[in-house]
Nucleic acid binder design. Structure first.
Length: 479
RNA sequence: CGGGGCGUAGCGCAGCCCGGUAGCGCGCACCGUUCGGGUCGGUGAGGUCAUGGGUUCGAAUCCCGUCGCCCCGACCA
């Protein structure tokens, strides 16, 4: 059933990526460098991501709230690692209302600090815990180098912030949210992500431990697609988030934070796209089926439109997102247009289908004639729904096979370098210092993407230091 | 900030070397034609040639300065 997708011409993958993003109408360039205008079609994909995540957050007892865009500069400074990590990329407001401000305001790069300050006031007793809050917001990070969706100066995301009574609860929460991200990525975005833990060097500024889901793009580069942090008591201590326990003892809370951003839109483009353009995962696609009527003469038009409208009504009734393309263009033009935009299924009805009471379903994941099939008009809902699921499975399968065939084990540094140079991911036993980790990055451009959670067990020898190693690391070049 | 490159119509570019008053493709508008895989033909609208100065009878073109943008690297969801 699965057909291998056309590989994007990776001699210049980022050029391909930019072209798709703009041609498929996901985004437009903004007047300010590094910012991006998200156009309606791109925004609808983001809304799909939002809905998928929000549903899961609600199901696990989280509530949405909203915190201010501006954060007093002094808040950032309360957690030493945090400010060190973020200060190079802050946008700061020093003048407002025509006056120099007494204290500069930082445009939030993330909200641990201001939410921590709020939590310290909200939490008094163990009865107030756990406190499970999420916010949908924009944040600003003045990055040196930007790319639409993957890294923009301003981006949209959700950031969850929770406070717990015990270390165990906080760790459970951290892992639960990581699982939710992975479940979403795999079952809705059809992106097979690897769950893992970040190294000391790569972890979030101020966190105890950072967990991540890592995805492989079509150029074999890694993309961190979501993170979940166990903040330990670092922020609780910096912001005085304390509670009175059952036995009347004052304790610091254990907090977590976790986020997924509009970068996910870029991940979908880069994980599934092919030479024809986007291939959207059916469960997230704003348009799941595009209906294209085909007729030559006016007397053909009416019966064709009647037939197609009837099918559209049935599909919509069943909850399928259908768009009718009745533009005055040639069919070939429309086919290419919607293929560029990645619509999973194209439904065609023409004069020849009328007598046979048939319709054509063309699937986006399999290009050309092979992806076309004739189906009876009766039972169109089942045919379409079945096909949408099949397309999802196929995209996931293709991406999984692609990923697995590009992860290689390395036992020596030479092997390692060879794997990285060819663009693949290197899987290695790891027991070496931070300095050695940095050295590998300097020499090869690859970083530890994560220590995968499903470790093989046993022990091995570190390819770099020769030390006995208990854990495995995945190295790759990343976005 | 280091290394490359580029600023000419909405977008992509040619013209510059060798100065003579601006052109192509796409897109856009209108007419006809076509429509089961990006139809074809015609007509038309649209430009301070990034910017300041200099050389010259004359500068998109040559010279000097300034500004902006893109790509590669360092930073990162």
């Amino acid at each position: 059933m699965a057909s291998q997708a056309v590989t994007p011409q990776s001699e210049d993958f980022s050029k391909w990526y930019n072209e798709i993003v703009y041609k498929a109408d996901l985004a437009a360039q903004s007047p300010v460098r590094g910012c991006v205008i998200i156009k309606p079609y791109g925004y609808e994909i983001w809304e799909g991501i939002r809905n998928g995540l929000d549903r899961r957050f609600k199901a696990t007892g989280h509530q949405n709230a909203y915190f201010p865009l501006f954060i007093p500069e002094s808040y950032l400074k309360r957690e030493a690692q945090h400010v060190e990590g973020f200060s190079p990329e802050l946008a700061v407001v020093t003048i407002a209302g025509g006056k120099e401000l007494e204290e500069p305001l930082v445009v939030r790069p993330t909200s641990e600090t201001i939410i921590g300050e709020a939590f310290s006031q909200w939490i008094q007793s163990y009865r107030d815990l756990p406190l499970l809050i999420n916010q949908w917001a924009n944040v600003v990070r003045w990055e040196l180098r930007t790319r639409p969706f993957l890294r923009t100066t301003e981006f949209l995301w959700q950031e969850g912030h929770t406070a717990h009574a015990t270390e165990t609860e906080a760790e459970d929460e951290t892992m639960q949210m990581l699982d939710i991200y992975a479940d979403f990525a795999i079952n809705e975005a059809a992106i097979p992500v690897i769950k893992g833990q970040k190294s000391e060097i790569e972890k979030f500024a101020g966190a105890l431990r950072t967990y991540t889901i890592e995805a492989m793009m079509r150029d074999k580069k890694a993309l961190q697609s979501g993170t979940s942090h166990n903040l330990g008591q670092n922020f609780a201590k910096a912001f005085d988030i304390k509670y009175l326990s059952k036995d009347n003892a004052e304790e610091h809370c254990w907090t977590t934070s976790w986020g997924m951003s509009t970068r996910m839109v870029g991940a979908i483009v880069m994980a599934h796209g092919d030479d024809q353009g986007l291939r959207l995962p059916p469960r997230l696609a704003p348009i799941q089926v595009v209906a294209v009527p085909i007729y030559r003469k006016d007397d053909e038009r009416v019966p064709v439109m009647d037939a197609i409208n009837k099918l559209i009504a049935e599909l919509r009734e069943a909850g399928v997102r259908v768009h009718l393309d009745d533009r005055d263009e040639t069919p070939g033009f429309k086919y290419n247009d919607w293929e560029m935009r990645g619509v999973p299924i194209r439904l065609e009805i023409g004069p020849k289908d009328l007598q046979k009471e048939s319709a054509v379903l063309a699937r986006r994941d399999i290009p050309g004639r092979e992806g076309k099939q004739f189906v009876p008009q009766t039972g169109i809902v089942d045919s379409v729904k079945g096909l949408l699921d099949e397309i999802h499975e196929n995209l996931l399968k293709q991406a999984t096979e692609f990923r697995d065939s590009n992860i290689h084990d390395a036992t020596t540094y030479d092997e390692f370098k060879q794997i990285i140079e060819s663009g693949g991911w290197a899987r290695v036993w790891w027991a070496a210092s931070n300095e050695e980790e940095v050295r590998v990055k300097d020499e090869t451009g690859a970083t530890i993407r994560c220590f995968p959670l499903d470790q093989p067990g046993g022990t091995g020898t570190c390819f770099l230091s020769g030390n006995d190693a208990e854990r495995v690391a995945l190295f790759a070049k990343a976005y």
